[in-house]
């Protein structure tokens, strides 16, 4: 089974969010970048599936040269080789087209990625890639087990979860608890240095949406403290001020 895992290169979950250049650019000052946490779940599950079945894992990232340490980390975790599409991932449609092009060229049986990226939270790329390739997509996937060419999965819904059966090939957007995140060991880190990382140029420049500006939410007013001995005051505030109860 040939598995493709698409990864994003995103600010660490503890990053302070700020913007520069008249609110048109993300302020990267002091920001640590990581493999998107949902993509990291997808990669961890891919490594487990590779251990169970014969196969290979390719990771793909759409990004500029600065994402290479993130890609090397994915190789250290267990991917065999990597593709970097040399472009800024500015738009979901653009990114989906780059992934679909790579799949058409290389041929993959299973395409995994996170349910959404941690920065823009679009949650669209898996569905777009599926449609561009004419195959099904499923998201958000909580468990994925292979039985020959058939995958058994659970998908989270607002009301609970669904059990799904689907034959390869397909695209899945993953989330916990599909697998535990894997921490690369020393051998993985050493071998990652020599694994192939192929840089290819993007095809086309079809953008669905263009950023105009960023903004931060309005600052929250000061918290009103209520004494632990007077919970009735909280009930009154919720009733009369917040008008919730």
């Amino acid at each position: 089974m040939k598995i493709l895992v698409c990864i994003t290169h995103v600010p660490d979950t503890t990053s302070k969010i700020a913007f520069t250049d008249g609110d048109t650019k993300f302020d990267t000052t002091g920001v640590q970048y990581i493999i998107g946490p949902y993509d990291d779940y997808a990669l961890a599950r891919a490594v487990e599936l590779k251990e169970q079945t014969e196969g290979s894992i390719t990771v793909l990232n759409v990004g500029t040269a600065e994402t290479e340490p993130t890609i090397r980390k994915a190789l250290a975790i267990g991917a065999d080789d990597a593709i970097r599409v040399n472009a800024e991932p500015t738009d979901s449609l653009f990114v989906a087209q780059q992934i679909a092009n790579a799949v058409k060229k290389e041929g993959f049986d299973l395409i995994l990625m996170g349910r959404e990226s941690l920065d823009f939270n679009g949650g669209m790329v898996h569905g777009m890639v599926g449609e561009l390739l004419g195959i099904p997509s499923v998201s958000p996937v909580m468990t994925l087990d292979m039985d020959g060419f058939t995958a058994k999965m659970t998908r989270e819904t607002e009301g609970g979860k669904e059990s799904i059966e689907l034959d390869l090939p397909f695209v899945a957007g993953c989330q916990e608890p599909i697998a535990e995140w894997k921490i690369p060991n020393m051998r993985g880190i050493m071998s990652a240095r020599s694994k192939p990382l192929n840089v290819i140029e993007p095809t086309g420049n079809d953008q669905g949406a263009t950023l105009e500006k960023y903004e931060l939410p309005a600052a929250k007013g000061a918290v009103k403290m209520v004494s632990a001995d007077n919970v009735q005051e909280l009930v009154d505030l919720l009733k009369n001020e917040a008008k919730i109860l």
Partner: peptide
């Protein structure tokens, strides 16, 4: 609605209709 199902469904439709899709 940007729901568990709606997210994926809208992504497929966006390709079929050559539409700009914005979520959230």
């Amino acid at each position: 609605a940007n729901s568990s199902l709606g997210g994926s469904v809208s992504a497929h439709v966006s390709i079929k209709m050559n539409a700009s899709l914005v979520s959230n």
